[in-house]
Design a protein around this nucleic acid. Structure first.
Length: 503
RNA sequence: GGCCCCAUCGUCUAGCGGUUAGGACACCGGCUUCUCACGUCGGGAACACGGGUUCAAUUCCCGUUGGGGUCACCA
């Protein structure tokens, strides 16, 4: 009942309906985990989680020139940080392992041999140099001509003792048709294909072959990947048909481009997941932004991870490429940090502590940086901080004694005229009925009223006195969080500093 | 260049024949205000173009233009 070789005969539905979907993310360990790659992983993961299917992680490391163990580790680390957990794969096992391609070499070789024996593939003894020569020759004759492997060894029957690659006998007539879950029907004439290489000279598979053998053996039922792979789909489908197995479903995702419209790369700013982790983004916000890129759910912009799982569908994926927008990304992160329902106090604090500790290295107050202390100060900065890194910056004056004094701020606000005001403010808060925001404010207001001063004129000096900066949370919150002793001490010190400074 | 894909505000997008074309980010104003934010109110801002189909096209079809992808013993 399998699909035949005629065009239009490839049906994918039965597989998908009969069992839980199996999806995979198959990165190459050749660098950091790219934000675009994460989106691919995310969409696969969302569908697996929504449908109760299986999410497989497979490492495609057949490019031995560029693959590194360090990169492999970074990719795992990034996926873990994002919370995109896999059901089968490295470190997790599964019935279809190993999940690293270089550990599956004998499998590819056996499968290639199977095709050769069935005359669906052949050994090609043409060398790379020969082919390059032919390519150049053709180009010299006709610059517009398309070079395709001429089929030199396609029907060759001898088996000389020479190095060879294994090539696929591409179907000659007809076309490949499939129904993409986001792009719809795609038809490609087979004439476009050439006899592509399955196995290199050393027996290491090339992408299209490795991916198909693995997807086939791992029983992947839906292949979702970037649109840049769309051109690989027809040859891959030929391979499935050559093996006589069911063709999986395909879903291609529109591309994420740089604001300039070029392919997104490091020269356009942060593109690796680790950079966002280091800046203090929260993983769910990263997923939120990436999900909303090329996918939508009515007017909703902010999603928790659970909401994404619930709402996701291929039908709501767009088809147009998009441009990465760092500002919107930041705004989404801010939204997640502001909302306790999205980022709990505990989560917020535990993610902020490392940032605070990092900036407190060598400072004696480091021991005071605890999740508990940070948690109790959180309410001051929830609305303000856009990243955990920024939160740590805002919290810094509360975990350092004395606070770092901004020199410009001091020069401008800790001036002679300010000294008596700071002192007056100090006395006012010192005689507050109790050390609460309300009582402090009441006491300060009373002092303001009797002294004829306005908060406008004393505020900034007091702020610099308490925090060393010109921007901070509300003064009463600052006083409260700092506590009576520290507050009074900082105010005294600043008052005398102001008095001295301008002599 | 061949083949393939795409096309709504600057950006991400809603729209699935009849809407004052909606939201979000960004931008610009007002309000709030002890700073910075947050919040809130308001504003400017889009259906690439040309043909069809239809009583009616942003929406369906074709073409043009524009953008993107890909053309390896990379993935």
């Amino acid at each position: 009942m399998r699909a035949g070789l005629e065009p239009g005969a490839v049906s994918c539905y039965s597989w998908a309906l009969m069992s839980k979907p199996r999806l995979r993310f198959a990165p190459s360990p050749t660098g950091y985990l790219h934000i675009g790659g994460v989106r691919t992983a995310l969409f696969n993961w969302l569908w697996a989680r929504k449908t109760g299917g299986t999410f497989i992680l497979r490492v495609e490391d057949t490019d031995q020139e560029r693959s590194t163990d360090a990169s492999r580790a970074v990719i795992f680390e990034s996926l873990n940080w994002l919370g995109l957990d896999w059901d089968e794969g490295p470190g997790k096992g599964g019935e279809h392992g190993p999940y690293t391609q270089m550990e599956r070499l004998s499998l590819y070789q056996a499968k290639a041999e199977e095709l050769v024996r069935a005359k669906k593939a052949f050994r090609c003894y043409c060398t790379k140099a020969e082919l390059d020569l032919q390519r150049e020759a053709l180009k010299a004759k006709d610059p517009k001509a398309q070079f395709k492997y001429p089929g030199t060894c396609r029907e060759r029957t001898d088996e000389p003792n020479l190095p060879y690659v294994v090539r696929f006998k591409t179907f000659r007539g007809g076309s490949v048709r499939y129904v993409d879950k986001v792009f719809g029907e795609i038809v490609t004439p087979n004439i476009e294909q050439q006899d592509f290489v399955l196995l290199r000279e050393g027996g290491v598979p090339l992408y299209n072959f490795g991916a198909v053998v693995d997807d086939m053996m791992m029983e992947v039922s839906l292949v979702a990947r970037g649109r840049d792979h769309m051109v690989n789909t027809p040859p891959q489908i030929m391979l499935y048909e050559a093996f006589g197995v069911k063709v999986p479903e395909f879903a291609h995702l529109p591309m994420m481009l740089a604001p300039s419209g070029e392919k997104l790369s490091k020269r356009h700013g942060a593109v690796s997941v680790s950079e966002y982790a280091e800046t203090g983004y929260t993983p769910d916000a990263v997923l939120n932004y990436l999900a909303r890129f090329g996918w939508s759910h009515g007017d909703q912009e902010v999603f928790s991870k659970e909401e994404l799982i619930h709402a996701f569908s291929w039908e709501s994926c767009g088809r147009g490429d998009g441009k990465f927008d760092a500002k919107k990304f930041l705004a989404i992160n801010h939204e997640h940090l502001k909302t306790p329902g999205l980022t709990t106090d505990g989560d917020y604090a535990s993610r902020t502590v490392p940032f605070l500790k990092k900036r407190a290295i060598g400072v004696q107050s480091e021991a005071r940086i605890t999740e508990k202390a940070v948690t109790s100060a959180l309410y001051m900065i929830r609305e303000r901080a856009t990243t955990f890194g920024q939160a740590a910056d805002m919290l810094d004056p509360f975990f350092r004694e004395p606070p770092v004094m901004d020199e410009k701020a001091a020069a401008k606000f800790l001036i002679k005229e300010a000294a008596p005001r700071i002192a007056g403010f100090r006395e006012a808060v010192a005689r507050a009925a109790e050390w609460t925001e309300g009582a402090l404010e009441a006491s300060v207001n009373a002092w303001l009223a009797e002294s004829g001063l306005e908060m406008k004129v004393v505020g900034q000096s007091v702020r610099v006195a308490l925090t060393g900066r010109t921007a901070s949370p509300s003064l009463y919150q600052v006083l409260f969080v700092l506590g009576r002793d520290v507050s009074l001490a900082r105010l005294s010190r600043a008052a005398s500093m102001a008095d001295r400074l301008s002599i």
